[in-house]
């Protein structure tokens, strides 16, 4: 049984038909990437999984449970983390408070402390900024905070929406290293990216999304060699 599976999912914004029958799976332990150009429906896919929007039709299953009608807070509590596009840092909560919010469902203060310490181990920069407002951090620091915050609830599946967006190349490297490392520690990852090159270099498998439809689905290695992917997403002839 897949950890996450979408079956013929359709999603709408009013009359806009944003997802036109998406079916995909993520197995426990994998890094799966979802690539596609701007407006393809990548974020909508993640929003439909985490309950921020409900599919018009189709099924979303997490760990064998139908979650397509559940509210986001309940889906999160079931072990599904979503680091949203644009990072969603609470601007006038401090770094510490942002992290505390990530652990909102965790009632044991000792566990919260340990996980916060782990976040600081991953991103020592955050520790220096602990009492600063989230809104005062640089883009890279905000992305670190968003990931560290996403880990506070120790999700079984972590969905990251364009974590490399707007970051300097060094930081992009760091973020992808951490994605790989988290995966080594057992976190399953669904990675949405426009940076297809990087995404396909860390992922096991990938899906290519165009205009709300999946057009390709293969191992990352095969996708890297695919002519469509090479021309459209990797900028190669």
């Amino acid at each position: 049984m897949s950890l996450l599976s979408l079956t013929d999912v359709h999603s709408f914004y009013g009359h806009i038909h944003a997802l036109k029958g998406i079916s995909l799976t993520v197995e426990e332990g994998e890094i799966v990437t979802l690539i596609g150009s701007n407006g393809a429906g990548k974020s909508t896919t993640l929003r439909t999984v985490s309950g921020l929007m409900h599919p018009g039709s189709g099924r979303v299953e997490f760990d064998g449970r139908d979650i397509s009608r559940m509210e986001p807070h309940a889906i999160v509590a079931a072990g599904l983390g979503h680091v949203p596009e644009g990072r969603g840092i609470f601007p006038t909560l401090t770094v510490r408070e942002n992290l505390e919010m990530g652990a909102f469902t965790v009632r044991d203060p000792e566990a919260v402390r340990e996980r916060m310490a782990y976040g600081f181990e991953l991103f020592p920069r955050l520790k220096e900024r602990i009492d600063q407002h989230g809104g005062t951090l640089s883009g890279g620091e905000q992305q670190m905070l968003a990931i560290a915050r996403g880990l506070m609830m120790q999700p079984r599946l972590l969905m990251l929406d364009e974590p490399s967006m707007g970051l300097a190349p060094v930081l992009v490297e760091l973020i992808f290293d951490i994605v790989t490392m988290l995966n080594d520690k057992g976190v399953t990852i669904l990675l949405v990216e426009q940076n297809a090159l990087m995404a396909l270099s860390v992922a096991h498998r990938g899906y290519v999304l165009q205009n709300g439809e999946l057009v390709l689905n293969d191992t990352a290695a095969n996708l890297r060699r695919d002519p469509l992917v090479r021309t459209a997403y990797l900028g190669m002839a």
């Binding site: 985490s50 986001p72 999160v76 509590a77 969603g88 609470f90 919010m101 909102f104 609830m153």
Partner: peptide, 13 residues
């Protein structure tokens, strides 16, 4: 500050 993100923290909005 951000209702959608708050719900992703497991907060019942």
């Amino acid at each position: 500050q951000d209702r959608a993100t708050a719900s992703l923290m497991g907060i019942n909005v």
